[in-house]
Computed example of a mutant assay.
Amino acid sequence: MKTLKIAIQKSGRLNEKSVELLKNCGLSFENYKSSLISTVSNFPLEILFLRDDDIPEYVQDGIADLGIVGENVISETEVEVSFLQLLGFGKCTLKLAVQNNTEIETLQDLEGKAIATSYPVILKKFLDKNQIDAEIRTISGSVEISPGLGLSDAIFDIVSTGGTLKSNGLKPFADVMSSQAILIGRKGEEDNPLIQELIQRIQSVLRAKETKYVVLNAAAENVEQIIKLLPGVKSPTIVPLAEEGWVAIHTVIPERDFWEKITLLKAAGAQGIVVMPIEKIIL
C-alpha cells in the first residue's frame, strides 16, 4: 500500500493546530522540530514539515499528496489543487490598512498611491477589479512599518486581531479576502481510499468540536416539548429513570446554538443538565 505524504507548516501560525488535528485523528507521530519528515506509526502516512509558501507547489507537483495551508496562500501562488476540507482554524482576513492621520478615505483615493504587501497577486486582482491603478511594492515581512518609514501610503496584509496595526499607527481600511486553513490535495487523486479515510477522520474531529453532548432529566409529560428543541445526530436517546414518571434525555447540540438551546430547554422543564465535550462524531 502506497504511503501518503501530507505537507504542513514547519513553523508559523498553522503548525500547532495542524499537528493537533492530525493527532486528534488518531495518528501517532513525533513532531520533530529539527526534521523535515515524520513517519506516522499507525497509518501509511508521512508528514512533511515545510514553509507554508512551498506547500501548494509540493502538492500540485505530486511531491506531497495532501497539504494543510491557508486559503490566502493558495490564492497567492495560483496553483492547481483540489480543495478537500475547510478546517476551521487559522482564520484571518486580508485587509488594506492606512495610517490613522491619512487623507485616504475611499478606495478610489488609492489611485496613484503606493501599497506595500507580501501578497502582490491577490492585491493586484483586487485593484484591477476595482479599476484602481496603484503601485504595488512587494515586501517580505514587517509590512506594517512601511508607511511610517515613508515606503508606502498603505499596506495590504493578514490581520487576525488588529493589534499589530494599532501598535504601528494603522487602521483597517477595506476587507479584501477571508482565509482559514484548508486541506488540499493533488488534482485527480481525490478518490484515493487512504485520502478518503483520512478526510473522514478529519471530518469526525471537526464535527465533535462543533457540538456538545448533553444529558438532561425531564418529567415524562415534558418530553414531547423538549424533543422538539433537540436536533441530535438522528434523534435524542430517552432512558427511564428510577423515579417513576421521569426520564433522562441524551442528545448533541451544535456549539453555535448552545446557550440559546439551554435557555429554551430549561423553560420547557429540563433539569439536571450535564454538558460534556465530544471527541469524535462518525456518521
Rank of each mutant, 00 (worst) to 15 (best):
S146W: 12
G148M: 12
E135L: 14
S152C: 05
T161D: 15
I132H: 03
D128G: 01
S140P: 07
I136A: 04
T102I: 09
E103I: 07
C92H: 12
A134Y: 02
G90C: 13
L107P: 04
E135G: 13
Y119A: 04
A97G: 08
I132L: 03
V98A: 05
L149F: 09
G162Y: 00
G88W: 02
V159L: 09
F126N: 13
D133W: 08
Q108N: 14
K95T: 11
E144V: 15
F126A: 12
I155M: 01
I155A: 02
Q85Y: 01
L149T: 05
G162D: 03
G90M: 10
P120N: 05
K113C: 09
K124E: 15
T102Y: 08
G88H: 02
K95R: 12
L94P: 00
G148N: 14
G112D: 02
I132K: 02
G112W: 01
Q99M: 13
D157P: 05
K91V: 04
T106E: 13
N130T: 00
A97M: 03
K124Y: 11
E105R: 11
L123R: 01
I136H: 00
I145S: 10
L94M: 11
G163I: 09
G88A: 06
L87F: 08
G150E: 04
Y119M: 12
